[in-house]
Nucleic acid binder design. Structure first.
Length: 412
DNA sequence: TGTCCACTGGAAGGGAGGGCTT
DNA sequence: AAGCCCTCCCTTCCAGTGGACA
């Protein structure tokens, strides 16, 4: 081969000026169409600078409606101002999708407050109350105002209950030398229904609803990022409109629009084209659908994979709206073929709910009268994903065996 | 109006695995 | 080493449910 293999790509014209402008974690300096929300947060959090305790807040809105980015933006400015004024303000952002138990949330915050010489708090082992006590003493030691942001708080409550929120919202009664404020961010408007009324009244002293972006608003956000992230005149007419319209269909998700645009630009680059047109957006759309599902599938535990396989198998045989019972029969059949003990129907019912939450299947409860009550299950997996992709490349024989095309037992 | 079906989903608890304390 | 605490994954039990049907 002539020359270095990287040279060909390195020499290519790049359409991006700054790729980070399309990152989900990118923090823009302007937040179009979120002025009202920024102001509400600022009006409340300014108390932290005056030495008072800001009200606890709950921010609601569909995914990609700017809740997290607005909160980060405001807290960033708050920290700057606090430093300038010599007011001690600490902020903690916890994503409750990753940190989803009472112990871990408290442990994460307390560890962030740790200093050299402190006993490190283990990931597990201590009684939760002890970690909570440690948190209180470390907060008091640091002093000032502590603002705890619990992103995807609905996820925490559905997994771990509202015990933690009870503790956190009553921290101020135990703190002597510092003050604490909670900002909960939720995708689910009705999640407070799962809470004890006492927790609800303390937590949602102020509610802020982020309405989904409409297509024109998403278009403004995209234009902003195009100016920062791309070369001039790269985007052809109609591209931003299409990205915005597609994302607006998906409940006004601005992140989705940014992903679409970023991948569209990459598609144009891969083809050594100097501009991005609507065909690139269509290509990006189908890649996004594929990419959304396959990494999630790969990380699923074996029984969930088998469950997805069972649903897919039924669908390949022309079935739609498959009942829980039918899904279970196909699943346990597949388990038998690979000599794995099937889980109980109760467990499978829960796993179907989990797969529904992950967006891998669509399940809804229906009653067929005397035919009983059940779920109607359909897969949400794009057509191009086959059994091998579901089971993962490392387990092709298991996939073949589960489909009955290969005898695993003869190999055991 | 009551019965019945095929489940759903809450509650309780077992057991494995991991870590800390005494 | 024993005892304790925590999470995670799972089972078992069972009351509850929506709507067709007799």
């Amino acid at each position: 081969m002539d020359g270095n293999i990287f040279e060909k790509i390195l020499g290519q014209d790049c359409l991006f000026v700054d790729r980070r402008a399309f990152d989900h974690a990118f923090e823009p300096t302007r937040l179009p169409h979120r002025g009202h929300e920024v102001e509400s947060l600022v009006r409340n959090l300014v108390d932290a600078l005056n030495g008072h305790i800001p009200s606890n807040m709950l921010l609601y809105g569909v995914p990609g409606s700017g809740k997290t980015v607005v909160t980060r933006f405001v807290l960033g400015q708050l920290l700057d101002k606090g430093e300038e004024m010599g007011q001690s303000v600490e902020t903690y952002e916890i994503n409750c999708r990753n940190v989803d138990t009472k112990y871990r949330v408290v442990q994460t915050i307390a560890s962030k407050l740790g200093r050299r010489g402190d006993t490190p708090i283990p990931f597990t082992g201590w009684p939760t109350d002890r970690v909570l006590e440690e948190l209180i003493s470390r907060m008091d030691r640091a002093g000032g105002v502590h603002i705890i942001v619990l992103d995807e708080i609905d996820n925490l409550v559905s997994r771990a209950g509202d015990g933690l929120l009870y503790n956190l919202t009553s921290l101020n009664t135990s703190l002597r030398n510092s003050r604490c404020c909670i900002i909960g961010i939720s995708n689910d408007l009705n999640f407070t229904q799962q809470l004890d009324p006492r927790v609800t009244s303390r937590l949602s002293q102020e509610d802020l609803v982020f309405h989904p972006y409409g297509a024109p608003e998403i278009q403004d956000i995209l234009s902003e990022r195009v100016n920062t992230g791309l070369r001039e005149d790269v985007i052809e007419e109609g591209v931003l409109e299409l990205c915005s319209a597609l994302a607006a269909q998906e409940h006004g998700d601005a992140r989705r629009a940014l992903d679409l645009l970023r991948i569209s630009v990459q598609k144009a680059e891969q083809r050594s084209q100097k501009t991005v047109d609507r065909r690139h957006v269509r290509l990006a759309q189908s890649q996004l659908e594929y990419d959304q599902v396959t990494p999630v599938l790969k990380t699923l535990p074996l029984h969930q994979k088998l469950l997805v396989l069972a649903i897919k198998l039924n669908e390949d045989n022309g079935m739609r709206n498959i009942s829980t019972g039918e899904t279970y029969r196909t699943y346990s059949d597949a388990c038998m073929k690979i000599s794995v003990e099937a889980l109980t129907p109760r467990r499978i019912s829960s796993l179907l709910n989990e797969l529904d939450t992950l967006g891998i299947i669509m399940a809804r409860n229906v009653s067929k009268g005397r035919g009983g009550r059940s779920k109607q299950v359909n897969s949400a997996i794009p057509k191009g994903v086959d059994a091998i992709s579901i089971m993962g490349e490392s387990e092709p024989l298991i996939a073949e065996a589960a489909l009955g095309r290969y005898n695993l037992q003869s190999q055991l």
